[in-house]
């Protein structure tokens, strides 16, 4: 077998394992993600309740012909095994790609820490998501599941997953950009207690044409444990209270605020939250390059196979929208008010 054939051969080998695991039981869940009908096919039940809550707001009735199907299972609960690639030294790369198992048709990556395998066959529109033991799935995978497969497939459709939050109203919203700790989550989650609607706090799907548009993908929120007191109204709904020593607080918002989740809106601006320590929240105009600096590096760093196309989409979005610093004050209630007034103004 030559090196060009290896990725497809490995995909097929793993897909055969899924089909074996699926002999006993398959559960299908259908979703509308950024306008695309997508099916999650679970072999067995074990991962269902760990992966679907974050997508609950996008669930649809049965789809006859999904454009993408993702096969999901774990070895422990299905009592099946899958063969590893022939690791030869440094075969696992920084963003998870497995050396030698990627080409124009097949993507293969393994996420350190989460220890999940993600594969995508672009030709068959078929994804594979596997891990050894469902009980070891970390909280960041349950709060934003299937990131790699979804972002790769959607990228080919002109939709880019970005490391950004988004809030707004039906007429329009803002993209909240910046690295971890910049205030994206505080800003986005504070909007649940306001006239604004919540699309996301950490990952958003964006498309530049015909006008910049944002799509919600995960109706979850996360906060560092030492910061949960800033949003006391969310404390009763922390889903992993017993693990806050090791994990961020995770909120499954569709369970508690279904009326506050919005699936999409046109984008009106890019906001860069930054903590000031002052009382008041205000906006400060900045330039396109500052917006891109806050958006692009943190997106590219963590999503496998992001490159030129992703950069082009993000540049198109930033070129079309005004960019502002959102100087965050300590009066949390004022944050959504400032955003709302901007959108209404």
């Amino acid at each position: 077998m030559n090196s060009e054939q290896k990725p497809l051969a490995f995909f097929n080998e793993i897909y055969d394992c899924y089909q074996e695991a699926a002999l006993a039981k398959v559960r299908d869940y259908d979703y509308n993600i950024a306008g695309f009908p997508i099916r999650l096919s679970f072999a067995g039940d074990a991962l269902v309740n760990r992966l679907i809550p974050a997508l609950a707001h996008l669930k649809t009735a049965h789809i006859c012909e999904p454009l993408l199907t993702i096969c999901i299972w774990d070895s422990t609960s299905t009592n099946t095994k899958i063969p590893p690639p022939s690791w030869e030294g440094q075969h696992l790369q920084k963003r998870g790609e497995i050396w030698g198992l990627n080409n124009d048709r097949i993507h293969t990556s393994f996420m350190w820490g989460a220890n999940t395998l993600s594969m995508l066959d672009y030709e068959r529109n078929l994804g594979i998501y596997w891990l050894n033991n469902y009980e070891l799935l970390p909280y960041w995978e349950t709060s934003s599941p299937l990131r790699t497969i979804l972002q790769l497939w959607l990228n080919k459709k002109g939709v880019q997953m970005v490391h950004a939050g988004a809030v707004g109203i039906a007429e329009g919203g803002v993209l909240l950009v910046g690295k971890g700790g910049s205030g994206k989550s505080t800003t986005a989650l504070s909007c649940l207690n306001s006239e604004l609607f919540y699309a996301s706090d950490d990952y958003t799907l964006i498309t530049p044409n015909p006008v910049p548009f944002a799509y919600s993908i995960y109706s979850t929120g996360k906060k560092k444990p030492d910061d949960i007191d800033r949003l006391p109204f969310l404390k009763p709904i922390i889903s992993n209270r017993e693990k806050l020593g090791q994990e961020k607080a995770v909120y499954f918002l569709h369970d508690h605020f279904p009326e506050k989740i919005i699936n999409s809106f046109p984008l009106k601006a890019v906001f860069i939250p930054r903590v000031t320590g002052k009382l008041e929240t205000n906006l400060e105009k900045t330039n396109f390059t500052t917006g891109l600096s806050a958006l692009v590096p943190s997106t590219i760093k963590q999503l496998p196979n992001t490159g030129k196309t992703a950069c082009q989409i993000m540049m198109q979005i930033a070129q079309k929208l005004p960019c502002y610093y959102l100087n965050l004050g300590t009066n949390i209630e004022q944050i959504p008010e400032v955003i709302y007034q901007f959108l209404k103004g």
Binding site: H91, Q93, K94
Partner: peptide, 11 residues
């Protein structure tokens, strides 16, 4: 976007 020229740690 298609390859990583500097690997991280070996397995």
């Amino acid at each position: 976007d298609m390859e990583e020229l500097l690997a991280l740690d070996p397995i």
